[in-house]
């Protein structure tokens, strides 16, 4: 009895806490953790959707995947895409933010215009891009031809398909980067700029490097990580515009997972690729969390 009496005050906060956190935790367990565990388990079996009871195959799937030419290509393609989109969107976003910050009038209008591509559904926008880039009646080729410049079947050419997708990616992400940079720039105290000017730092570049840059560095790092995460997760434009082709030129990681799972029905292979993909996004997520904290503190 005395045990109970002792335990009661200790356990009292628990039921209420569980009651409050329970539904969310349960949903998370059911909708996020559960499937995740299943996916990881499937990566170690020969199970395919609709097939018979799975057999444990150890690391076979991982070995096969790493040896798979298409998968190797997809890792490279994803890396190349990321290396094009992230610096592009980052620098353009910063540039636009600085221009807008200096703007006296129409700032909100421009802000909205530049942010629009990010809000617009990339899937719907892909269709618009497809029309623009059509080899015979697309305005891009017609414009180039009118200027006497060479034309191409942009999305069917191995050399141009990925850069074109990256351009669309930059067009989409720049607004996102810009909004963050605008917020960061506004937080730079004007007194610092004034003080710098009095100290003789007249040039814009000097002031940018010595005053602005240190202030926006944490945000820039944060934006860098988020943009990288976005770029690694590119799918819509690939699925709608190139289906990974021509050849392997635009076969990004997420598209490989989709193809393995839903076109080839190799569920175990798709699960293995997903585990690989998760490792990348988890690393980025953790980085983002850590930088977010630091950014908040700064």
């Amino acid at each position: 009895m005395s045990d109970l009496a002792l335990a009661a005050p200790l356990s009292r906060p628990l039921p209420k806490g569980i009651l409050l956190a329970g539904p969310a935790a349960l949903l998370m367990l059911l909708l996020q953790i559960g499937p995740l565990v299943l996916v990881v388990c499937a990566a170690f079996t020969d199970w395919q959707l609709g097939g018979e009871a799975p057999n444990f195959v150890g690391l076979d799937n991982f070995r096969a995947l790493i040896a798979d030419h298409d998968f190797q290509a997809s890792v490279l393609v994803t890396a190349r895409y990321t290396l094009m989109v992230v610096p592009g969107a980052l620098l353009l976003g910063l540039g636009l933010a600085m221009l807008l910050q200096g703007a006296r009038r129409g700032r909100t209008v421009y802000q909205t215009i530049f942010f629009l591509p990010y809000i617009a559904t990339l899937a719907a926008m892909s269709i618009a891009w497809q029309m623009l880039l059509h080899p015979s009646f697309g305005p891009v080729n017609q414009g180039l031809a009118a200027l006497g410049l060479p034309v191409a079947n942009w999305l069917r050419d191995e050399n141009t398909a990925l850069p074109v997708l990256a351009l669309i990616g930059i067009w989409h992400e720049t607004g996102f980067a810009m909004v963050f940079f605008l917020a960061a720039l506004t937080s730079v105290p004007t007194e610092l700029h004034d003080a710098a000017r009095i100290d003789g730092l007249g040039g814009g570049w000097d002031r940018f490097w010595l005053v602005t840059a240190p202030h926006i560095a944490p945000i820039a790092l944060f934006v860098l990580v988020v943009l990288t995460a976005h770029a690694v997760m590119v799918f819509d434009t690939v699925a709608l515009l190139t289906q990974g082709g021509p050849g392997n030129a635009t076969r990004v990681l997420l598209f490989v997972i989709y193809q393995e799972g839903f076109s080839f029905f190799r569920t175990n292979v798709a699960a293995t690729a997903t585990v690989f993909f998760l490792a990348i996004t988890l690393t980025l997520g953790m980085l983002q969390l850590r930088l977010g904290r630091r950014g908040g503190a700064a």
Binding site: D46, Q48, G51, E158, G245, P246, G247, N248, Q259, E260, S263, F264, F265, R266
Partner: peptide, 22 residues
């Protein structure tokens, strides 16, 4: 077999490379 559709994709890729002249 379990790689049925992946095999179809391999033949597709070979045809694509032939048509493109790669």
């Amino acid at each position: 077999g379990p790689n049925s559709l992946k095999a179809i994709d391999a033949v597709y890729a070979a045809m694509e490379a032939t048509v493109a002249g790669r």
